[in-house]
């Protein structure tokens, strides 16, 4: 049985001792798990990570992917990651910040990747997600379309899909949609 009166007296004293110090930042279990994920990152050469808010904010970061094979070779694609405080209970929120002509990424930057939604498991990590994104560029698939038109072209006419991708990446129109240049 806990002696609550003892608790009270003791904690008053602690509160006084703490007075005058800067408030302690709460670090959640999610931040600690993310710390582990980040400190163990092992990315392919074509992927780089950056932390726009500096070394102490790991919950918000950006990943740049430069595919070295496939339809999207030569392009540079930026993704933003927002990691929730209950990570890895919940997956990170990922958006593609580069407008891309891609069957599995819509024009708002939503990404259809199973491990970001229905197949997320707490044993997965940031490295897995980045590899998953990387594979979307080497193996775009028309079976999980978010950009309906791009998916239909990839399925029915891969040659035309390839030239549409080249046109979009060089900066130009595909149909009614303009894509800014993303080839360096």
């Amino acid at each position: 049985m806990i002696n609550l009166f003892k608790v009270k007296a003791k904690q008053r004293e602690t509160a006084e001792n703490v007075n005058g110090k800067a408030p302690v930042k709460k670090q959640t279990a999610g931040e600690l798990r993310l710390h582990k994920d980040i400190s163990e990152l092992n990315l392919p050469k074509s992927c780089t990570i950056s932390f726009p808010n500096g070394k102490d904010d790991l919950m918000n970061f950006e990943v740049t992917i430069r595919p070295d094979e496939g339809y999207y070779i030569g392009g540079t694609f930026l993704f933003s990651f927002q990691v929730p405080s209950v990570y890895p209970h919940e997956p990170p929120k990922v958006k593609c910040k580069t407008k891309v002509y891609h069957p599995n990424i819509d024009l708002e930057g939503n990404v259809c990747l199973n491990i970001l939604r229905e197949d997320w498991k707490p044993v997965l990590n940031i490295n897995t997600v980045i590899y998953g994104l990387f594979h979307l560029f080497t193996q775009p698939n028309y079976e999980d379309p978010l950009n309906h038109d791009a998916a239909a072209v990839l399925r029915d006419n891969p040659k035309m899909f390839e030239s549409n991708v080249r046109r979009a990446m060089a900066g130009g129109y595909v149909g009614q949609t303009f894509f800014p240049r993303c080839i360096s």
């Binding site: 930042k25 670090q27 582990k36 980040i38 400190s39 990570i49 932390f51 070394k55």
Partner: peptide
Amino acid sequence: ASVTYQGKNLYMQAPPVLEEMT
């Protein structure tokens, strides 16, 4: 080992960009 104290990353083994900063 990578080390963190009260939300401050004192040392990070990876990725290179954070290793350099710490």
